[in-house]
Simulated scan of single mutants.
Amino acid sequence: MSSYQTPASESPASRSVFGAPCWVSLSTYDLRAAEDFYHAVLGWEWHTGEMGDQYRFASVHGVPVAGVSAAKSIGQTSVAWTPFFAASSANETVARSQERGGTTAVGPISFPPGRAALLADRDGAVFGIWEGALVAGWEEWRRAAPAFVALHTRNAFDAAIFYAEVLGWASGAPEACDVQYEDEEVVLRSKGEIVARIHSGAVESAPDPAIRPRWQVHFSVTDVEACAQAAIAHGGKILSGADGSSEAVLSDPDGARFAVNSDWQAP
C-alpha cells in the first residue's frame, strides 16, 4: 500500500486545508420539516444553490454553514449528519480508503463546483470527502457555526492511523493537519485550531445505529438549554446533557443526532 503523497499539480481550494473538516451535510426524509426544525433550534436561514431544489443550504448571517438533502438523493438511505473532509484528489482519497479496508457508498461524483464521495472507515463510521471550491472561506465557515466533529469508535489509535493515511493527516506537507494524543483521545488541528477529536468507547457491534461507530457534528451556540427546549418543541429529543450543561446531544424529528456546545469559542 502506498503512503500519502500530495499531488504535484495545482489543486482546487480544498487543497489548502486538505484533511480538515470543510463542510457538514444532513440527509433527511423531509426537507421542509428539517428546515423548520433547524431554523427554530439554531436560527439557520435556508436557500437553494447550484445543486438545485434537492439540496438546500443553511446560512448564519449570510455565511453558508451546512447543507441538507433528501435521503437517497446522494446515495444515503438513512438520516444522519455527515462531516466532509477536504481532499486534494477525490479519486486518490477513495483509492487509499479502499486499500486500507474502508468502503465506498457513493462516488466520487460531480457536484459543481467540485466532486464528492461518501465513504465508511473500517469500523463503519460514515464520512464524506470534498474536492473543489469551498462553499465558504474555511475560516469564515468555522466562525459561523460548526465547532468541531468527533468520532466515537472502538479504537481511537487504529482509527487515527486509518484517517491519517487516507486524508493525509501529519503527512509533513505545510497544509497538513496535526495529530496529537491528548487526555486519552486523538486531537486533530488545522491551522492551529482543534477541528476534530477521536474517542474510544465501549461501542458494541450491534446493528443499532445509535451505538455503532459514528462521526458526530458539534455546533457552537450561546444557550444550550434554549436549543434543547426548542428541539423538544419542534419534534426533536434530548439524548444527553442540557439542563445547565455546556453541551447537549440532540436529535431532530427524523432521528439525526448532533451536539450543541456553549463552551467553544470561535477563532
Rank of each mutant, 00 (worst) to 15 (best):
E175R: 09
N155Q: 09
E165T: 06
F157E: 15
R154D: 13
P253M: 04
G244A: 02
E184V: 03
E184A: 01
G236A: 04
E185Y: 12
R212K: 13
P207I: 03
P207W: 05
N155L: 11
W264A: 10
V166Q: 02
G236Y: 12
A226G: 05
A226F: 09
A176H: 04
A230W: 01
D208G: 04
Q265A: 13
A256E: 08
R257S: 10
K237Y: 13
D183A: 13
A196H: 11
F162Y: 14
A233F: 06
P207Y: 07
V224D: 00
A233Y: 05
G172N: 12
Q265W: 05
I232W: 11
A176F: 01
A230R: 04
A173Q: 12
E193V: 09
L250T: 02
D252A: 03
D158C: 08
E182K: 00
A233S: 04
H218K: 03
S205N: 11
D208P: 02
G192Q: 04
A256G: 06
V195L: 02
A176M: 01
A233L: 09
S246N: 11
E182D: 12
L167D: 12
A170G: 14
V195E: 00
Y163V: 02
A248N: 03
R214C: 14
A196M: 08
S190Q: 15
A233G: 00
V203M: 12
H218R: 10
I238H: 09
L250I: 10
Y181R: 13
G255W: 00
E193Q: 14
D243A: 14
D178G: 00
F219V: 02
H218W: 12
F162A: 04
V221I: 07
R257G: 01
T222K: 10
V221K: 03
C227F: 08
E225Q: 14
K237T: 14
H199Q: 11
S251V: 05
E193L: 15
P253N: 06
S262N: 08
I161Q: 13
A231L: 08
W215H: 09
E184Y: 12
A248I: 02
A230L: 00
G235N: 03
R189H: 10
E175Y: 01
H234C: 06
Q229K: 15
L167I: 03
D254K: 05
G235A: 01
Y163K: 13
V186D: 07
H234Q: 08
D223S: 07
D178C: 06
S171Y: 08
A230V: 05
E165S: 08
G172F: 08
A160C: 11
E247T: 10
D183C: 09
S190F: 07
A173S: 14
E204G: 03
I238D: 04
A248C: 03
V179N: 02
S200R: 04
A231Q: 10
Q229N: 12
I232N: 05
S245V: 01
S245A: 15
G235F: 03
H199I: 00
D183T: 14
A170Q: 15
H234M: 05
G236N: 09
R212E: 03
W169Q: 08
C227D: 01
E193A: 14
Q216M: 14
I161M: 15
G201A: 04
P207C: 00
L167H: 01
A170F: 07
E165L: 08
W264F: 15
T222M: 09
S190P: 00
S200Q: 09
E247R: 10
A202R: 12
W264N: 13
A156D: 11
V195T: 10
A156Y: 05
V249C: 12
Q180T: 15
R197L: 05
G241D: 00
D263Y: 06
